[in-house]
Design a protein around this nucleic acid. Sequence first.
DNA 1: TATAAAATGTCACTGTCGTTACAATTGAAC
DNA 2: GTTCAATTGTAACGACAGTGACATTTTATA
Lengths: 223, 223
Amino acid sequence: MAEVLRGAPWLAGYPDDLVNRLVSEGRLHRLNVGEWAQAEGDDRPGLSVIISGLLHSYCAAPGDREVLIGLVGSGSVIGHATRYSGGPRLVTAVCVEPSTLLELSEEALDRIGAEAPHIWQAMAGFAYAHMRSAVRMAAEVISLRPRERIAARLLAFHDHTQAKEQRVIKVSQELLGEMMGLTRKTINHHLSNFEQAGLIRVGYGKIELIHIDGLQMIADRVS
Amino acid sequence: MAEVLRGAPWLAGYPDDLVNRLVSEGRLHRLNVGEWAQAEGDDRPGLSVIISGLLHSYCAAPGDREVLIGLVGSGSVIGHATRYSGGPRLVTAVCVEPSTLLELSEEALDRIGAEAPHIWQAMAGFAYAHMRSAVRMAAEVISLRPRERIAARLLAFHDHTQAKEQRVIKVSQELLGEMMGLTRKTINHHLSNFEQAGLIRVGYGKIELIHIDGLQMIADRVS
DNA sequence: TATAAAATGTCACTGTCGTTACAATTGAAC
DNA sequence: GTTCAATTGTAACGACAGTGACATTTTATA
């Protein structure tokens, strides 16, 4: 568990002391497939660090819609951590693989912060990282047309899975469509197109990226 | 200046001591229309608090595109504040009204943090707030069709300008379109539609919200 | 192995938004 | 007060993505 924390980008560069405090103050929690990481309207604020497993994060949109925002895996953080983040919970996460989370209540964070104020700096850091990816996603959806958008998002997934030789994205076309506001039909159409061009290889519930630069060119194409 | 800081939501609830430190460590800076708040590729991290004026924030998207993400006014914060927020600067801000900013270099923040660690907590707070609005914007663009999207974004502007009786949004239809990935024509079409329904009143370079609940109903409409 | 569930490939039709262009209006600068 | 730039109103056409439906393939379950 401590290795996961030490490997998390938002904790890189902070002393191990911080990791140890997180481990000792946090509470381990197992989730089965289909369970929510935080119940909707859950009013106890706090963070959860994903130690292992995989969750889907959904964002509430107007009209009782739920939009799949992204996939969160080990090392990621979910939840909101400050009294001042305001308003009801915006993002909910459901477990799609058996997972273990390290829960950090607000009180626990306060206790850690009293001794090691770095914790707040680290939290600001990952809030920034989350913001970056959210802003980027919004910018993509606003400015790119479906074809370019699909290419850009595939690349975003690739960047996110740090392992460079790991070029297989395990997501169904249905989910892909849900994540970028397109129908499965449209996704399928463009993916087939990419496959014919030799850029990717489409499998059952997975997509293998073959020609990264080619995808980048498509994403960058103007007009 | 101190009043602006004290009134900023992300500093609410923190001792005045923090505000005073920010004022004394920060460096005041005036910007004229058309100037960038942070040059692209600017590698000195740091924050700027907008004291007065108005800026447009743009996000870089694939293919050298720049997308207008939002309008930032007094009390808002721009820039990234941690070494770990990673990668090149994502958001740039250009001044559209003569503005004054309070610049806080990373060193200044470190100095403040050494004495008043609360600063990091406050920064985590507004990073969260930024993340919230970014995620929400992404969710809207993904899940809502243009008509609902326009209604939702008008409401978002309204929420953002805290003054409840202030229901006039000063943005041109051109800019509105740029912000939500629609052409001015489409914006104009739907705005006219809303106006006929008595929900808004369209002016020259401004939009007055008349019937908030009606807009909410449109934004929430499913189908 | 048999069966069900999930995911993919494909179709014609429809609707909506983008494109391009021009006219009319408003506001501000001089 | 006049001029000019910025903004808004409007039109015909085409492209492209959404809808809904169905067949096929793959994986998981019994």
